[in-house]
Amino acid sequence: MIKLKHGVYVLLGTALFYASCSSKTEEAVQPNIANETITQASLKFTNQANPADTTSCTYTFHLDNNDNVTSVDSTTLKLKANSKYNGVVYMLDQTQTPVFVVSNEIKQRENYHLFFYQPTPISTAPVISNNSPYIPGTPVTPGQPPLNLSIVRTDLDTNNPPLQIGLTTVFTTGAASSGNLRFVLRHQPNAKNGTYAPGSSDLDVNFITIIQ
């Protein structure tokens, strides 16, 4: 679908360009098309103990007509203390019609992508490994009460050996506390090794998180 749409734009663009060549080419301004945009990122949670208990948080980017971000807003993530939640990532590009579900495309390109989840504040440095969803270099603030949240990724890609992805997770909460959840998507073409460093960030946002 997406291919067809882009194809139509290209054809339209080319046609417009040639049509306008004869007269006032420069005045026939082409539409602005960005190949890639993320306008909304959500995390949706289901309480393992009670499937009817769901919660979510959403980060929204408001774009102008040049596809530049003009403002952002986000909702607070509220989780129950001492609970386990199954988490799912849901990302959209709403500049396209129909709305493009980015998270589905990431599932298809799972060998090039890796999600990271970092609660803050933290009282001890996060354990970093190939299977850790935590971000290296996150500052430790011993004076502040930590956000009592731990995260594990629950999905694997088709690399050999398989590496985690992070489209699905389990969030485990401790005692009531509050802080932030930093949510990062790393794009690591031909370079994914389970760690944060390779590649670059496609998404890097913070959710205010309350465990109550």
Binding site: I2, K3, H6, V10, N35, E36, I106, H113
Partner: peptide
């Protein structure tokens, strides 16, 4: 042409032609 993360687009990111 930029590095694409998730888009299947074959188009360039930027096209400029000057006469």
């Amino acid at each position: 042409y930029e590095e694409l993360s998730f888009s299947p687009s074959l188009a360039p990111a930027l096209y400029l032609q000057i006469h």
